[in-house]
Design a protein around this nucleic acid. Structure first.
Length: 332
DNA sequence: TTGTGTTTTATTGCCTCC
DNA sequence: GGAGGCAATAAAACACAA
C-alpha cells in the first residue's frame, strides 16, 4: 500500500468479519425485513433488488450508522457457528459483489445531476444505498472514467465526420482543378495555332516545321524516336523558353506563383511529376522537399495520383503557367 | 460446460490543491 | 501532509458462442 493510503473495504474480507456473507445469507433466507436503511430509495425499491449474490451492502458504515446492530450483520454468529460451510466461507478472501440494478440506477441519476461528489453527498448517498462512502466514491470515479471514454468516442466521431466532409470538398476541388487544367490546355493550344497562323516567327516554329504535327501531342520523352533534327530543335526551344520563363518567375512577388511555375517547368519540359525531385537542380530539390514537408500527409498520395504525366501540348509552352497553384485548395 | 471477451468493482501510485 | 482525483491495472462477475 504505497503513498500511505489505506482502503479497507470493511465487508466480508479475509479478516473473517463475514458481514457481507451474513447479509447475503440473510437475504436469501428472506430476512431482509430488518432493513437497516430507511431511505426513500430503499423503501421504494423491491426487496429483491438487494438480494442474492448481486447484492452489495453497506457494512461498517451502516453498521455504525445504525447503532451497530450486531444481530443484523451477524445473524448466524451464534446460531450457526458450528456450520463448517459457513465457517469456510467466512474465511474466504473477499469477493467482489456487483451493485444491484436499483443501486446503480440511483447512482446514475445522482451522477446525471452532478458527476462530482462532495463529501456530504457521498455520505448521504452511501447512507441511502447502504454502501460505504468509499464504494460510492469509487463508483463515481469509475463512472467518470466511462463517461470520459464515451465522450472521447463521440468527439472522435465528430472529427471523423468533419474530416470526411472536408475530404469530399477537397476531392471536388481537385476534380474542378483538373477540369480547369484541361480547359487551359485546350485554350493554350488554340492560342498557339492562332499565333502560328498569324505568321509570328519564333525559334520554335522555325525549327519545328518538320515535326509540326507530332510535337503538340507527344511528350518529350516520347520524342526519342524522332530524327536528329527535331531533337535539337526541341532542346533549343526548351532552353530558350525556360530562361524566359525563369525571368518571369523571378519578377513575380507571389510565392505561390513561383511554386506553380516551378512545377510547370518540371511538368512541361521533363514530363515528370510535380513533386519529383530533380537531381540536377539542388535548389529546386530543396523547394520540393519543403513543399512535401509542409503539406498535410494525406495530400501527397492525391497529388501523385493526379495525372501530371499528361503531355503538354507543346514543349515550349511557358507563356501560360499551366500549374497555377493559386486555385489549389491548400495554397492560400 | 467451457473458453473467451466484456463490464464492473476495487486497488495502486502519482499528482494537485488547500 | 492529508484528501481527493485520475490513469492504469487487477480481478471478479457476467454474457455468450461453440
Amino acid at each position: 500500500m504505497a503513498g500511505g493510503r489505506m482502503y479497507t473495504s470493511g465487508n466480508c474480507s479475509g479478516s473473517g468479519d463475514g458481514s457481507s456473507l451474513c447479509v447475503l445469507i440473510q437475504s436469501q433466507k428472506g430476512a431482509r425485513s430488518s432493513q437497516p436503511l430507511d431511505s426513500p430509495f430503499l423503501s421504494a425499491s423491491t426487496s429483491s433488488s438487494f438480494l442474492g449474490s448481486r447484492s452489495m451492502v453497506s457494512f461498517e458504515d451502516v453498521h455504525l450508522a445504525n447503532g451497530s446492530n450486531k444481530s443484523f450483520f451477524r445473524p448466524f454468529e451464534h446460531d450457526e457457528n458450528g456450520d463448517e460451510d459457513f465457517d469456510e466461507y467466512f474465511h474466504q478472501p473477499e469477493k467482489k459483489r456487483r451493485l444491484s440494478v436499483d443501486q446503480v440506477q440511483f447512482l446514475e441519476k445522482s451522477f446525471e445531476v452532478e458527476n462530482k461528489l462532495e463529501p456530504e453527498r457521498k455520505v448521504q448517498l452511501a447512507k441511502d444505498l447502504g454502501l460505504q462512502p468509499r464504494q460510492v466514491a469509487i463508483w463515481f470515479q469509475n463512472r467518470r472514467a466511462r463517461w470520459k471514454t464515451k465522450q472521447l468516442e463521440k468527439d472522435y466521431d465528430i472529427l471523423q465526420t468533419s474530416y470526411n466532409n472536408l475530404k469530399a470538398d477537397y476531392d471536388n476541388l481537385l476534380k474542378e482543378k483538373d477540369k480547369l487544367k484541361a480547359e487551359v490546355v485546350i485554350l493554350t493550344d488554340k492560342l498557339h495555332l492562332k499565333e502560328k497562323e498569324s505568321g509570328k516567327t519564333e525559334l520554335c516554329n522555325v525549327n519545328n516545321t518538320l515535326s509540326q504535327e507530332q510535337l503538340p501531342q507527344k511528350p518529350i520523352a516520347d520524342s526519342s524516336s524522332e530524327g536528329e533534327v527535331s531533337k535539337v530543335s526541341i532542346v533549343a526551344c526548351k532552353q530558350e523558353d525556360i530562361s524566359s520563363a525563369r525571368s518571369d518567375i523571378f519578377d513575380s512577388d507571389s510565392p505561390h506563383y513561383t511554386d506553380g511555375v516551378h512545377s510547370s517547368l518540371l511538368e512541361t519540359c521533363d514530363s515528370s511529376y510535380v513533386f519529383e525531385p530533380d537531381q540536377s537542380d539542388l535548389s529546386q530539390d530543396e523547394d520540393d522537399n519543403l513543399s512535401k514537408n509542409f503539406l498535410p500527409a494525406y495530400v501527397f498520395p492525391k497529388l501523385e495520383e493526379a495525372d501530371y504525366s499528361e503531355p503538354p501540348t507543346s514543349s515550349c509552352n511557358f507563356g501560360f503557367p499551366i500549374e497555377d497553384h493559386s486555385f489549389w485548395p491548400w495554397s492560400y
